[in-house]
């Protein structure tokens, strides 16, 4: 570890030396951010500048990011594919108050997720944030209702197709942008009124495609991990047992 101690100290020294060269904290003055703040509402009728940056100005990054999530979930499915026998274990039964409260919580979280997605380009939020909230609502079903309910509510294959649909829709909307706006991921619907749901052109479509994909991807991810977790311990450790 001596080698790392010296190298680590040197590395840390370099990092801190670099940080000293940054402009003073709190004095951001570069044109890029300021320009986007200035033109986002007049040109795209969107009031959430971060959202419009993610889906329009830097929409290609979001395409890549969405497919990173897609590839990762496909990868996890590939890595955890050794299918244990489809064994739905005995769940502990949750008590009535928990189930009642849980049902309310699931519904609330689901509605919140939809809201966050829908107004993503108007107020803080967007496809990613709302999609995660929606996936959280589904995971809450597992927490309050047990594995059986989760498993019966969310079959694997349609979810994987929904995930592929969401990701593919984003890519294809980009091609539609070529037809109507002359550039990939060009904005092409009517711009509407800033501050309302009908604004920002084709960004709502991209927004919802992202939400579908993120929600489906995360639920598939949870299912893959839960599937391993729900196995009784004896069926998947080697004979000599854990070390």
């Amino acid at each position: 570890m001596i080698g790392f101690a010296i190298a680590g100290a040197g590395f840390a020294a370099l990092v801190f030396w670099a940080l000293v060269g940054l402009p003073d904290f709190g004095h951001y003055h570069w044109p890029y951010g300021n320009a986007l703040n200035a033109i986002a509402t007049p040109e795209r009728h969107a009031t959430n500048v971060v959202g419009i940056t993610v889906f329009d100005y830097r929409g290609l990054d979001t395409l890549g990011e969405e497919f990173i999530l897609f590839a990762s979930v496909v990868g996890v499915s590939l890595l955890l594919r050794k299918d244990p026998e489809e064994h739905v274990p005995a769940d502990e039964v949750r008590s009535d108050p928990i189930r009642a409260l849980g049902a309310v919580a699931v519904v609330l979280l689901f509605v919140l997720g939809l809201w966050v997605v829908a107004f993503g380009y108007v107020t803080p939020g967007g496809g990613f944030q709302g999609g995660v909230a929606l996936a959280g609502a589904f995971l809450l079903v597992y927490v309050v209702g047990g594995y059986r309910q989760y498993h019966s509510l969310l079959p694997h294959s349609p979810l994987e197709m929904a995930e592929a649909f969401g990701a593919g829709a984003f890519a294809i909307l980009g091609f539609v942008g070529i037809v109507y706006a002359g550039a990939y991921l060009g904005n092409f619907l009517g711009l509407g009124n800033a501050g309302s749901l009908y604004s920002a052109g084709s960004v709502p479509l991209l927004n919802w495609a992202t939400a579908i994909e993120v929600c489906a991807a995360l639920v598939v991810l949870f299912s893959e991990f839960l599937k391993i977790y729900m196995l009784p311990a004896a069926s998947w450790t080697p004979e000599e047992g854990p070390r």
Binding site: L22, F25, G26, N37, T47, V49, V50, T123
Partner: peptide, 30 residues
């Protein structure tokens, strides 16, 4: 890096105001 003293979030509802850099927030989201 994107912070500005005395500025708020880049959400311009109901009206425009000094805002911090939205680009780094988009980068962080990604």
């Amino acid at each position: 890096i994107g912070y500005k003293n005395g500025a708020a979030a880049p959400i311009f509802r109901p009206s425009h105001h000094p805002a911090v850099d939205p680009v780094v927030q988009a980068l962080t989201l990604t």
